[in-house]
């Protein structure tokens, strides 16, 4: 399965069984993308990595 990168429009492959919320990297612009939706496959720029958690 594949979809287009929201940043640069390149074609981004996500393997055959992507998971909701999965992080993938755009092969062209390198932006970290998140699988927002599975049917139809939709990608969005992933939120920034956070270094910390709760209790």
């Amino acid at each position: 399965m594949a979809s287009s990168c929201p940043e640069c429009g390149a074609n981004v492959g996500v393997g055959n069984k992507p998971m909701a919320g999965e992080i993938v990297q755009c092969p062209d612009c390198g932006t970290e993308l998140e699988v927002k939706n599975l049917q139809p496959l939709e990608l969005a720029v992933a939120p920034a990595e956070e270094e910390d958690w709760g209790e």
Binding site: M19, G21, E22, I23, P47, A48, E50, D52, W53
Partner: peptide, 22 residues
């Protein structure tokens, strides 16, 4: 609310329903 990432096997996922914050 923080966009928490977690390892799921080989993959990394953003946990959308995670109520963790700063």
């Amino acid at each position: 609310r923080k966009h928490v990432r977690a390892r799921e096997g080989e993959r990394v996922v953003v946990l959308r329903d995670d109520y963790t914050g700063k």
